[in-house]
Amino acid sequence: MAAKIITITSGKGGVGKTTATANIGAALAKNGNKVACIDADIGLRNLDVVLGLENRIVYDLVDAVEGRCRLRQAMIRDKHIPGLFLIPSAQTRDKTAVSPSDMVRLCNELRPDLDWILIDSPAGIERGFRNAIAPADEVIVITNPEISAVRDADRIIGLIEAEEKGPGQLIINRLDLKMVQQKNMISAEDVVDLLAIKLLGIVPEDKEVVISTNQGIPISTNDHSLAGEAFRNIARRMLGESVPFLDLEEKGLLKRFTSIFGSGGN
């Protein structure tokens, strides 16, 4: 085994990096993979609560980096999903406690025993972001169909290219199909056209996400949630399966909609 290291980043805060990391990690593990999710947002720990593991933390990322514990001791086993692990971030330190080379060393140590290492990047383009992308084999850029999030995603893609980590792959999160049909939200197709990188998945807006986060259970384990299905599809694509995108339906609907009312397209 030699894990693939994937960093999930966005530039802008609040677009769904942590939710995506937790859910893709859970879906990969449910497929029989051994997965570690690393929270690289030092000082603003959050992946633990999204995964519902906040009460199990003894050691964190900074403890492991500074040698106060062995790396294994900082890996928290998920309550429900075998093969899923969390390395929590430190809450009381700042982003300078860890360097990019610390992250590379730590990931190299983990790599032989895992299938996937997912790194949840902090927002911004400073030290925390550099730490998160340093060990990455590939980068996933997540954005919302909103002007500020798309702009920041474009900036991040430029920085990833400059670091020679490839252009990355794109997840469009919180797409509201109804608003797209009413032409009040940029479509997934337009976001892909603007950012010009490979699309990995489209996650629809879904109130169930808030509910499952309240409960500390990843939405990708919920068979009745659209967002959950979208995250499971992303994991399947990462595992090499070809799964059709949501926007095929979206375009079909849009076409029908515009032909009924006779208003022109774009």
Partner: peptide, 13 residues
């Protein structure tokens, strides 16, 4: 539409 405005503004930005 606001979506078109957003796309056009983004293209320039």
């Amino acid at each position: 539409s606001s979506a078109t405005q957003a796309k056009e503004r983004l293209q320039l930005v």
